[in-house]
Design a protein around this nucleic acid. Sequence first.
DNA 1: TGAAAATTGAAACTGAGTATCATATTGGCG
DNA 2: CGCCAATATGATACTCAGTTTCAATTTTCA
Lengths: 139, 139
Amino acid sequence: MLEALVNSGYSNTRARRAVIEAMFEARGQASPATLLALGQAHHAGLGRVTVYRTLELLQKLELVRQLHSEDGCHAYAPTQHEHGHHIICQRCRRAVEFAGCDISAVVATVETQTGFRVQNHWLELFGLCPDCQRGALDG
Amino acid sequence: MLEALVNSGYSNTRARRAVIEAMFEARGQASPATLLALGQAHHAGLGRVTVYRTLELLQKLELVRQLHSEDGCHAYAPTQHEHGHHIICQRCRRAVEFAGCDISAVVATVETQTGFRVQNHWLELFGLCPDCQRGALDG
DNA sequence: TGAAAATTGAAACTGAGTATCATATTGGCG
DNA sequence: CGCCAATATGATACTCAGTTTCAATTTTCA
């Protein structure tokens, strides 16, 4: 991720390293506030503004994707697949990326039904991760 | 919508009528700020707080659904179908609900791929509405 | 109509996100 | 290695959506 950033001509700075490390320490996703807190463990002076700027940059380079859910739309998740989506654990909030979403049948139906021409879509799944499925048994 | 609200035991108030009317005057979706502005045409004294409270109520009764998109997650759209989703025009922002999204194949794949158990999903389509498809030809 | 219950909205507050700008860091070059 | 221009940073101040509070108003129902 840092490498991709450098390859695109951006500087390898202490602040950016801190944010990226924070991103990977979180469980697949993190809010700006979380990234700030985690990032400050690596670089005490890390500022709020820089977290936002770094996220903006990572998002532009498609290294990170913004997640949306009931409880707010301020989480960011690292991406491996260009056209991936995320599944989020409703219990522990862990996010995992998946690829290969084929919704062409739905798209075709909707185009007929509404007359819209579909150009893009946004899909997110919610459920229980393997760990929390086990945990749910205990209560 | 007003009827459903009253049937659930809530009062039929001037403020709520104004918000609901505003909701239907918008193109299938509106932000709280828009609802406030449009609603004040019906009830000049309408307050910001009441718009938020009414939206919360309508959302609880599933008469309205929150939409998410690139440019913010502060839009609300009226719903007809309990398990509907929305398609949003990228040009004019008009939102239309559609029903019958069958993504069980994707769900099955993802469950195998990730080990998650899927319980819920969130789907939104983006594209051009019929009007804007024509408009796009003009430029 | 009258009174209790529900609802409203003005005012003050909160906190995420943004703009600004002087300072510090980075990377290339000699 | 050390210097310099370009890049990036973060302290500060600001904005504005959304929330809390609470006295006043509106609604409902007997």
